[in-house]
Design a protein around this nucleic acid. Structure first.
Length: 617
RNA sequence: GCCCCGGUAGCUCAGUUGGACAGAGCAGCGGCCUUCUAAGCCGCAGGUCGGUGGUUCGAGUCCACCCCGGGGCGCCA
């Protein structure tokens, strides 16, 4: 049940289901209960009668009426109406709503927690490459993965964050070879230098045999052919050198390994800096790079062969599929392994060693086919089977590309790829500018803050804008990165949610400094009498369901949409209902507690998204 | 050529797996600050849901075909 509003909705759905089997013996059907689309349809609407009417060959309205006649809802429901083609619209009694809210107002905020025996979850995230600058693609793999980890953790799962670093193989060896040849100081090198060395090494190693063959066959001049031949020979030499370095690394050559580690450290320093800026939990504990699996690759291939799942094909080892032409290549003709081999080892580790029943890959959508093949191969060999017989769910979350306003992949004015760092710096700058500008007003709540405090708030706002914009729509789709739109800070944005939170926080501060100073936190019951209070209260009860849906669908957007809805409803309530200035004390106390609950829910939800919730802004 | 993903308001997107007249946010227009933060609230306007057939009491949602855009396609990762 994804659209439950906490226990109360579950109770209603259960009772309707009982009533259905009572009214129509031999028939069972879910209540199909969900929050009403409009206030005039009550608090909840159930649409079981249409589907049931169809199977029974009966008029849905009659089915609804007979079901209601059997239903025991008196203690919860004030009004049950049949409307339209056969919808059942339910309105809760005020006392049932008050009771539900009192129960909901606990540290868990109604979020269910799975049992301690539940299998852990492994999430492949970040996926940076050593010696390469982070770009916008890493933004997505990092923050989406982190948020899914947080959602699962919030629901009580043990989560293994797995950073599948590109830290092994020929490209790294080529870079390392070049750096050592040039006697570069690896202790002081920056990632920018490293990245340049990486690109140069790649260029040096890029042979163009096809171009040479074409030049010969097209009868190009001897000078051109000589030039191309020389290039090819240089490239071959570069690759031969790199292979020697790789062998040295593989065999544990102390100097080579020490240098290799320095490359990783240099890269990770910047990765952690960016992760910190993004409020993403990532550390060395999460590093399970390609090198982690390097000694398992031969065994992986052996097992595939010995179990008859893989076979030789034109000198290479492949895993054929029953329903597909193209097999999965797991060992090259020259004996080398491929990234598919590493991924197979990684799945085995995550399921068999970590015991995960759910392995989530937050990786770029272009790798759809690759993961489909890898997962299929894992199922063929049975590595997705846990010791207790459950089959692990292997799932690739294929996030879309980040595009510029021109719908082309994001580039700087000079046509280069945006580094993630540059992008975040820009967002932070915009956030700070905005916060400082607003603080200049004498009556602004932030007016008295010092510049450093304002900078911190500005950073939180700018980062919220970027993260929220990235995660607030279906992550499998491409999206247009438009900083101007993100930092407008109006409407469906991260800062809008933060703003609602800050408004409540500021109200609470005023309360505790003023009339309420002598009182404990309000514990009076919540009586949502005004329409806007009722809508806000009902939304609060849906928090747990929103997180469950987000985890099930692997969609951070469900959390975003929930928070936007909640912030909207709060702002409407705030406009319509005086809280501190409400003359009636019991109403005031009720509203204060409603506002306090809203603040905690927004803060909790923002934490799940890894977005800060400033007290003032 | 084959496979995958998209096409919903001027722009950016939702649409709860077939249910009430297709919803938001920007942008546009009109109201609301001597009252708890106007990064806000209230209202107006704006759509042949890419097209054509089909299934159904009911289709943006399911099926078929077609059009447009993007991505992928064995010894790179």
């Amino acid at each position: 049940m994804s659209w439950d509003a906490g226990d109360i909705a579950e109770q209603l759905a259960d009772r309707l289901r009982d009533a259905i089997s009572c009214a129509f013996p031999g028939h069972t059907a879910p209540a199909a209960l969900r929050p009403s689309a409009k206030p005039e349809f009550g608090d909840f609407q159930a649409s079981f009668a249409m589907a049931l009417g169809k199977t029974l060959g009966r008029n849905p309205r009659e089915v609804a009426a007979e079901t209601l006649a059997c239903a025991h809802l008196e203690d919860l429901v004030e009004k049950a109406e049949i409307a339209g083609p056969g919808f059942v619209n339910l309105t809760l009694t005020l006392s049932a709503l008050t009771r539900a809210l009192a129960e909901h107002d606990s540290p868990t905020l109604g979020v269910p927690s799975c049992s301690a025996q539940t299998h852990p979850v492994a999430i492949d995230l970040c996926g940076v490459n050593v010696a390469k600058q982070m770009h916008v693609g890493h933004l997505r793999a990092t923050i989406i993965g982190d948020t899914l980890a947080r959602v699962h953790e919030r629901l009580g799962f043990k989560v293994f964050r797995q950073n599948h670093l590109g830290d092994w193989g020929l490209p790294i060896a080529m870079t390392l070879t070049a750096l050592r040849r040039d006697a570069t100081d690896l202790d002081t090198i920056t990632l920018e230098d490293l990245n340049r060395a990486y690109r140069n090494a790649q260029a040096q190693g890029a042979a163009d045999e096809a171009g040479l063959a074409a030049a010969v066959s097209m009868g190009c001049g001897p000078h051109r052919i000589a030039e191309l031949t020389e290039q090819n020979e240089g490239a071959a030499q570069t690759i031969a050198d790199a292979k020697r370095t790789l062998v040295a690394l593989q065999s544990g050559d102390a100097a080579a390994v020490a240098d290799w580690k320095r490359l990783i450290e240099c890269t990770m320093r910047e990765v952690y800096q960016v992760a910190h800026t993004l409020n993403v939990a990532l550390s060395d504990d999460n590093n399970r790079g390609e090198s982690f699996y390097r000694d398992e690759l031969a065994g992986v291939v052996d097992e595939f062969q010995s179990k008859g799942v893989a076979r030789e094909d034109a000198g290479a080892i492949v895993v054929p599929f029953p329903d597909r032409e193209r097999p999965l290549l797991i060992r090259k003709g020259d004996g080398g392994f491929l990234y598919a081999t590493t991924d197979l080892a990684a799945v085995r580790y995550r399921v068999q060693s970590l015991g995960s029943a759910r392995v989530i890959y937050v990786v770029d959508a272009r790798q759809r086919d690759h993961f489909r093949d890898v997962f299929e191969a894992v199922r063929l060999i049975g590595w997705d089977m846990l010791p207790d017989g459950t089959r692990a769910q292997l799932v690739h979350l294929p996030f879309g590309a980040v595009l510029g306003k021109d719908k082309r992949p994001l580039k700087t004015r000079s046509g280069e790829n945006f580094t993630l760092k540059a992008l975040l710096d820009e967002a932070i700058e915009r956030g700070r500018r905005e916060v400082h500008a607003r603080a200049a007003a004498p009556d602004a709540p932030t007016h008295s803050l010092d510049p450093k405090a304002l900078d911190a708030i500005g950073q939180a706002v700018g980062i919220a804008a970027v993260k929220y914009a990235d995660m607030s729509s279906d992550v499998t789709r491409d999206y247009v990165f438009d900083l101007d739109r993100m930092v407008s800070f109006e409407g469906d944005t991260g800062p809008y949610i933060q703003y609602a939170h800050a408004r409540i926080a500021s109200m609470m501060t005023k309360y505790s400094q003023g009339a309420g100073a002598t009182k404990e936190q309000s514990q009076s019951l919540i009586h949502p009498i005004e329409p806007s209070e009722r809508l806000l209260a009902l939304a609060l009860l849906r928090y747990g369901a929103a997180l469950e849906t987000s985890a099930r669908e692997l969609q951070p957007a469900r959390v975003c949409a929930y928070l936007f809805d909640l912030a909207n409803l709060f702002n409407a309530f705030y406009q319509a209902c005086p809280v501190l200035k409400c003359p009636d004390e019991s109403v005031r106390e009720s509203r204060l507690r409603l506002a306090a609950l809203t603040r905690r829910t927004i803060a909790d939800g923002l934490t799940v998204l890894g977005i800060e919730a400033p007290e003032r802004m």
